[in-house]
Amino acid sequence: MSTERVIHPDADTLAGDIAERLAEAISRAQQQGREPHVVLTGGTIAIAAYEQLSADGADWSRVHLWWGDERFVAAGHEDRNDQQARDAFIDRLGIPDDHVHAMPARDASAHDGGEQSMSDAADGYGASLPGEPFDLVLLGLGPDGHVASLFPGFTQLDEQVRSCVEVYDSPKPPPERITLTFPALNRSAEVWFLVSGDGKADAVARVVAGSPVAETPASGVTGLERTLWILDEPAASHL
C-alpha cells in the first residue's frame, strides 16, 4: 500500500485535477471490464470538482455511486450530500437511478405513515453495500480532523462490526447524520483525501504525523492499495 501527495497552487487547480483523476480512474476500471463502485464525499472542493466532470473520458452509465456520510434530513434537502451531487453532475450526466445508492432520508418511510429511525436507516444502508471492496473512496477533512461523520472522541470511532452507523449529536449542523464506519471506509482499493484551505493545514499535518485516531479520525482511513492526498498549497502549508 502506497501513500502519495499531490499539491496544487490553488483551489481551482485542485478541483480541476480531482475531476480529471476521477474520470480517469473510472475509465480505467471500465477498461478492465468492471463497473466501478465509488464512494462520494460532500464539501466545497468536492462539489467544485464534480461540477467540472463531463461526459468525455468515462461511461457514466456504468458507475455505481455511494456516500461516505449523509445529513439525516428530508430527501431533496439542500443540505444533503446526494442532492448536491445530483445538482453538480449526476442528473447532468444521466447516471441511472439504480446506480445512485443514496443514504436513506428522514422521510424515506413517510408513505408508511412515519419517519424511518436512524439506526434502521444506517443498518439498511450497511446491508446494501457491495460485497467486493470499493474501487475508490473520496473523503474530505475537517479542521478538527474528522472524516465522513466520524468525529474526535465519538463512540462511532470504536465501531468494528457495523458498516454504517447513526450520529445523533454531530458538532457540525445538522446534528443527526448517518456515516460509514472505519471497517467500510477501509474496504477500498484507493482512498483519496480532497483538502483545500489553510484552515485544514493543521489537521493534514496531524494525520501525516500519525496523530491518534481518537484525536484525528482521518488517521484511521487508508486505501488497500493506495492512499492519495490531493491538496492545495494552503492545506499543505504545515507539512
Rank of each mutant, 00 (worst) to 15 (best):
109 S>I: 00
212 P>T: 06
22 L>H: 05
77 H>D: 15
9 P>R: 15
142 G>I: 12
181 T>I: 09
61 S>D: 08
136 L>P: 07
201 A>K: 06
144 D>K: 14
195 V>G: 01
227 T>D: 10
38 V>P: 02
133 P>T: 05
231 L>H: 04
180 L>R: 01
120 D>G: 06
222 T>V: 08
94 G>V: 01
205 A>I: 03
71 R>Q: 08
109 S>P: 00
56 D>C: 02
150 L>P: 03
98 D>R: 12
109 S>N: 14
218 A>T: 08
189 A>S: 12
204 V>L: 10
131 G>P: 03
203 A>W: 11
48 A>E: 11
137 V>M: 10
64 H>T: 02
218 A>H: 10
224 L>P: 03
14 L>S: 05
223 G>P: 04
22 L>P: 04
134 F>V: 03
51 E>Y: 04
35 E>A: 12
204 V>A: 05
24 E>Y: 01
46 A>T: 03
217 P>Q: 09
16 G>P: 06
103 M>G: 07
77 H>Q: 12
230 I>T: 09
64 H>K: 14
114 G>K: 14
162 R>Q: 15
163 S>I: 00
191 V>E: 09
37 H>G: 13
239 L>T: 13
212 P>L: 09
95 I>A: 03
28 R>L: 14
192 W>K: 05
36 P>L: 00
25 A>N: 06
156 Q>Y: 07
142 G>C: 13
34 R>N: 12
209 A>F: 09
97 D>W: 02
167 V>L: 06
69 D>S: 09
65 L>Y: 05
205 A>T: 02
138 L>M: 15
24 E>L: 04
222 T>R: 11
92 R>D: 04
82 D>F: 07
179 T>D: 11
90 I>R: 01
134 F>W: 11
9 P>L: 07
49 A>F: 08
32 Q>Y: 04
68 G>V: 05
33 G>H: 00
108 A>C: 13
11 A>Y: 00
28 R>Y: 11
22 L>C: 07
178 I>R: 07
95 I>G: 02
140 G>A: 08
67 W>S: 02
7 I>A: 04
19 A>C: 02
65 L>S: 03
157 L>I: 12
77 H>P: 05
170 S>W: 00
